[in-house]
Design a protein around this nucleic acid. Structure first.
Lengths: 242, 242
DNA sequence: GCAAAAGTGTTAGCCCTACACCCATGG
DNA sequence: CCATGGGTGTAGGGCTAACACTTTTGC
């Protein structure tokens, strides 16, 4: 990615078209998204986003943007919606940004490319939170995993995008059996169940859940995991190679 | 829409972003799409497509493009996928077009805007084929309903777009109960069944299909339809207002 | 009355749900 | 041997698939 807004141009990128990513991770029973806090005065958070090079597939651009932030390759990702309201632009954000960052005054015209109306393609990604090494880019002050139920102030329609991403994730979850992207290599049945309960926000019965999963024939049972607790040791599972 | 390619510019439209529409209709047991034959020498067919005005919602743009071709408002439509391969551009089409249309030589540079790489947002629409009055635009020689199994030569990735649209339609059909968009105001149970059989390309049992539909509680039974045939007259149905 | 097509009923099998029970483990 | 939590079995209810039967219509 270029070093600042100032370098952006249609020579490099497709104008007025962006990609917004919702990066889902799962940890300690919570569904989380990876969001950067922007490197300005004020409580401005965004979604990992970027633009598309002239000679780059849109899917590749999304993959690149995700790699930049997570440092892992071959991420599972899914295009889920295009956000194309006419009023989608960064003007409002820029004006409140400038209000709180007077030192930026004067360079305003250099952001022209950036404050035009944008159409954004939404992708969601599923990652093993332990494998990710969150990276800031030039525009970020920091980047953090936050509980999807405790989102900070996202600029633009960030929250709407995340909501829609979650709906798309749920719709695809069963059909595409993508849960493994959110889990470590091996896991117990209870951990898998907790993941489902978190994502669908409803309880499952332990035994029926186990039967459902085993009947899918996608899990391989490994050795038991002795936790030291005074109870039966659970089996570890991994997803079968396809 | 502007009068020709020559008028296209980023002042009016968002550059390098287009909309492609797959307009589904249903008639005589066949699922059809409305496709224009381009107004040039050669067997070039396209999808109803267009661009997005700077101050226009993407969804509105799709609606406008559909209205232009069908002359009906409030069309059911659904955004289903973004086609963003880097090699998606009209260059190949333009070169074979120019080969078969030598009179266009020389005006080539005026098509610069048009032959750049394009990202296209796919929408599919469901319409009552009897209500549509197909309209050509400046770029069309003619526009026709064609059986989805007998598509002509579509430029670019037209066929891939239609295939994906059909998959999306099937996926949404049950959940969203959108079948009525493809049928006239009133219809018989058999007609509804035929529609389902056409779209899903599989047979249903008459009685079970009827039970399934009636249990959905979305149909209102009207008077019988006396066809003159020597058999029991079927009821007419309409979809309940929601 | 008969053929054709529509409407309705009915049973068997399947899947999911809910409950029950058994087993391993460490203290 | 007991408390805890994991693994497995099973009966009941609802849904669906498949078949059978009845009704209506025009000739």
């Amino acid at each position: 990615m270029s070093e600042s807004y100032k370098g952006l141009s249609t020579q490099d990128y497709i104008a007025q078209l962006s990609i917004d990513c919702v990066i889902f991770g799962y940890q300690n029973g919570l569904l989380k998204v990876l969001v950067p806090k922007l490197n300005f005065q004020g409580d401005f958070w965004g979604l990992p986003s970027g633009f598309i090079y002239q000679h780059e597939d849109v899917d590749q651009a999304a993959q690149r943007i995700l790699e930049d932030r997570t440092q892992i390759k071959d991420i599972y990702l899914e295009q889920f919606h295009v956000f194309g309201n006419a009023h989608r632009n960064n003007a409002e954000f820029m004006s409140s940004l400038l209000a709180q960052n007077p030192q930026l005054q004067g360079s305003q015209e250099e952001y022209d490319w950036f404050v035009r109306r944008f159409v954004s393609i939404g992708y969601y990604a599923l990652v093993d939170i332990k494998k990710v090494k969150p990276q800031t880019t030039y525009i970020d002050e920091k980047i953090e995993w936050v509980d999807i139920n405790q989102l900070p102030n996202l600029i633009l329609d960030g929250k709407a995008i995340i909501s829609k991403a979650l709906l798309a994730l749920r719709a695809n979850f069963d059909d595409h059996l993508v849960g493994y992207n959110l889990l470590p290599e091996t896991f117990t049945m209870k951990e898998l169940q907790n993941l489902y309960e978190t994502i669908f926000d409803k309880p499952y019965r332990r035994n029926n859940f186990q039967k459902m999963m085993l009947d899918l024939n996608i899990l391989k049972r490994l050795e038991k995991q002795f936790t030291g607790a005074a109870n039966k040791a659970p089996y570890l599972y991994k997803f079968k190679e396809m």
